[in-house]
Design a protein around this nucleic acid. Structure first.
Lengths: 235, 235
DNA sequence: TCAGTTTTGATTGTTGACAAACCGCGCGAT
DNA sequence: ATCGCGCGGTTTGTCAACAATCAAAACTGA
């Protein structure tokens, strides 16, 4: 009757290339593969009990996604992001959030606002518990959910791609300091504004939140390149 | 002495996968492969004198780029976009243009403005000559250049990816009517505003231009779904 | 000792082959 | 006539092997 398997095993889905894609993605994200590291096709293939074909297919996807760089006759390397990349991504990210705000002012539901509020509550709890790891996770989810709530899949997908790139960087600077409290305070404001539903105000507030995040990250950097041009001052 | 080949053949660059990627990209964009068509790996491999390995690698990249869809045990299919996809993409596109405006208000150079003006002149000439094909090409270039001028590679890359997706659709509705004149008129305004350099005004004007483009496309559609929700009314 | 060259082991690039899955066709039962 | 079923050709999934290329060690001659 039902030809589909009873349950979906954790990551057995379909082709080996798909599994390897996920495996590599987490290896990069978790840091087992650091920026600049080469991906050894044979070794990885043996490790996972496959041949090199699927490995290369997975790497091609990661290449297009921007997580990995390809050099002819040299192989695939985990992409290294420099400061200018980070700033670029944050600019795009801010633009996407601005747009998300415009869309959501009209279509966000009470249930969705509640979901955000719940995440926010958990975030505040994790601040009290001084659980930086958890706060970071919830924070990512908070933003990701907002993007999904727009119903615009392209928007959400592009955002998550960018977020994944940033993540490789951000996880270094995972400290629980005044920054997270400031961030949490902005969330309160955002949720409040979702209830009001003014498109341009919401666009602006989300844009500013994204920008603030950028500046917070910059401040945690070793020899913080102070006074980077601030593109955001209007008029 | 010089180990590099004397000349770079049209698209010989490096790996077969790279060549095939470009080949497939143009096949899809030129319309030789229509939406929904399956990509026959063996056939394509024989056609280009390679094996299936590189073909699959190229398809994986196209998959991640969104031009192609993959179904397990069925193969790769040229992605079909429905109306909601188009609207989604246009929303994101507008957000990106808005951001481009903010960036360029500060950093666009006179030379760059001149380049845009030249493109604009050529566009007006092609309107007079009733050369729709040429206008369309120049128009894409006009927008693409704006994005590149930002200096933000992520921004420009994401834009061009989206534009490529849209292109598959837009090329159907390639007619030279009042629309192109309206579009050209907006370009004049945009160039004018580049000279002034007000970030928020430029952001708004570029966003509006993108939105207008969306509405123009919608109007050319067969049974134009009138009155689609207009997300753009502020407040 | 050192610069330049050769060798060598490791790694990528590509291929052809085989196994598994799918799709359309025809056949037979109802 | 219609539905179910099996069958064969076609296409995808994966692999192991071979050729091309690279990077670093070993070597050579001053």
């Amino acid at each position: 009757m039902d030809p589909t398997p009873i349950y979906e095993d954790a990551d057995e889905s379909g082709s080996l290339a798909q599994q390897l894609y996920r495996a590599l993605e987490t290896m990069i994200i978790e840091g087992q593969l650091g920026p600049g590291d080469r991906i050894n096709e044979k070794q990885l293939a043996d490790q996972r009990g496959t041949s090199r074909g699927p490995v290369r297919e997975a790497c091609r996807r990661l290449e297009e996604a921007g997580l990995v760089e390809f050099k002819v006759n040299r192989g695939f390397f985990v992409r290294v992001l420099d400061l200018s990349d980070i700033l670029e991504i944050y600019d795009v990210r801010a633009a996407l959030f601005s747009q998300a705000g415009r869309i959501l002012a009209r279509r966000i539901t009470m249930a969705q606002i509640d979901e955000l509020q719940q995440l926010q509550d958990q975030m505040e709890a994790s601040i009290e518990a001084e659980d930086a790891e958890k706060f970071y996770l919830l924070n990512r989810q908070f933003h990701s959910r907002i993007m999904r709530f727009t119903g615009n899949r392209h928007l959400a997908d592009i955002y998550e791609n960018l977020d994944r790139e940033l993540h490789i960087w951000r996880k270094r600077a995972l400290i629980l300091d005044g920054n997270v409290r400031a961030s949490a305070a902005e969330h309160v404001q955002i949720i409040e504004e979702f209830r009001n539903g003014h498109p341009s105000r919401l666009a602006r507030i989300l844009r500013d939140h994204s920008l603030a995040g950028r500046n917070r990250l910059l401040r945690t950097m070793p020899d913080s390149i102070a006074d980077t041009e601030n593109i955001w001052d209007d008029d």
